[in-house]
């Protein structure tokens, strides 16, 4: 009883997604018909614009990540290490 109620509620909730063409109770969707080239044009434009921020952020993120990795590597090279290691060793020797 409870399960069937739950399932039917779920179905009702999912209905607008599954049957969107039937459910689009849109009174003024004049330019919304699928075979209109303008609709298609807007769809592509929406997709393009939607993808752009992520493309830009992704490339900048990748660039920064690459640079940070490189500078990290440079910092951990032996030449950079040598100054720190003896100092640390001295500290241990000092027995504090």
């Amino acid at each position: 009883m409870k399960l069937s109620f739950f399932l039917s509620a779920l179905l009702a909730a999912a209905a607008p997604v599954l049957f969107h063409s039937a459910a689009h109770a849109c009174a003024v969707c004049l330019s919304g018909s699928a075979d209109d080239p303008l609709t298609d044009a807007f769809n592509w434009s929406v997709l393009f614009l939607m993808a752009m921020p992520y493309t830009v952020l992704g490339s900048i993120g990748a660039f920064l990540f690459y640079n940070y990795r490189r500078s990290t590597k440079r910092a951990s090279e032996p030449s950079a290490r040598t100054t720190i290691a003896p100092l640390t060793w001295i500290h241990k020797e000092s027995g504090r």
């Binding site: 607008p16 997604v17 969107h20 063409s21 689009h24 849109c26 003024v28 969707c29 004049l30 330019s31 919304g32 699928a34 609709t39 807007f42 769809n43 929406v46």
Partner: peptide, 12 residues
């Protein structure tokens, strides 16, 4: 822009 006219799929 729901009311401005839009492909229902896009609207969803």
């Amino acid at each position: 822009m729901f009311i401005s006219g839009m492909n229902p799929l896009l609207g969803t």
